[in-house]
């Protein structure tokens, strides 16, 4: 379903060249829950962004649900993301300050041309699912960090994505809230949905079906990678 062949990503500034990813070969199957670990700056987020089609690899092949998307333009990537359904969850929540909870969640549906009535129904449903329907009209600033991340999870789930990418989703949360978010992610797995999560927390990584370790842009645990 997701297949990376010899993927590399190089960032260039005028006089510095950074090899963020180097010779990444990886395959992720449907319904898998994959953890990505590694020290800061090892390329975890870059890999996640490439997997989620918000960043382009410098070289290599990336087969995304049967389509080699390496070399696609931004607009093409956007179209593929819309078609497949990709949900994102960030460490810093990234809610839009000027929109309330329901509107923030709704954003994920707007660009998929979902009719207004259907949007409302799905937003209500997903907010119930994350336990925030009573907060639908609140602004992000009025919520706690845990609640904000649950809104972000709801936003990721509302489009019924096949792929959920979570970048340190528990990084800014206390233990209890982190656990709640982890449970939600675990519930998502299956039913044709794959979850890939970048994390620093060994305990949370251990709950994934398998874990990939990165160091300096390379996958360093061949056993996990080959599994």
């Amino acid at each position: 379903m997701l297949k990376l062949n010899n993927i590399a990503k190089v960032y260039r500034t005028t006089d510095v060249q950074t090899q963020a990813l180097d010779a990444i070969n990886l395959e992720i199957r449907p319904n898998e829950f994959v953890g990505i670990m590694g020290p800061s700056g090892c390329g975890k987020s870059t890999l996640l962004n490439v997997l989620g089609l918000v960043d382009q690899p410098t070289s290599g092949e990336y087969w995304f649900y049967g389509e080699n998307v390496a070399g696609y333009s931004e607009d093409q990537l956007t179209a593929v993301r819309r078609k497949i359904g990709v949900g994102f969850i960030f460490q810093s929540f990234n809610l839009i300050d000027d929109l309330n909870v329901a509107e923030n969640v709704e954003v994920a549906l707007i660009y998929r041309r979902v009719a207004a009535g259907e949007r409302r129904r799905r937003v209500t449903k997903v907010l119930e699912h994350v336990g925030l329907s009573h907060r639908a009209k609140h602004m992000p600033q009025q919520l706690s960090g845990g609640q904000q991340q649950r809104v972000a999870v709801a936003r990721a789930l509302v489009c019924e994505p096949k792929l959920i990418l979570a970048d340190e989703p528990t990084g800014n949360l206390d233990t209890a809230n982190g656990e709640a978010v982890m449970q939600m992610l675990e519930q998502c797995v299956g039913n044709d949905t794959t979850v890939i999560m970048v994390t620093h927390a060994e305990a949370f990584a251990a709950r994934a079906h398998r874990c990939i370790h990165l160091l300096d842009g390379r996958i360093v645990d061949p056993i996990s990678a080959a599994a």
């Binding site: 989620g52 956007t78 994102f88 990234n94 300050d97 923030n104 660009y111």
Partner: peptide, 11 residues
Amino acid sequence: VEVGVRKVSGA
């Protein structure tokens, strides 16, 4: 942030 979120949401 708004731009980023809207973008990953398919705008």
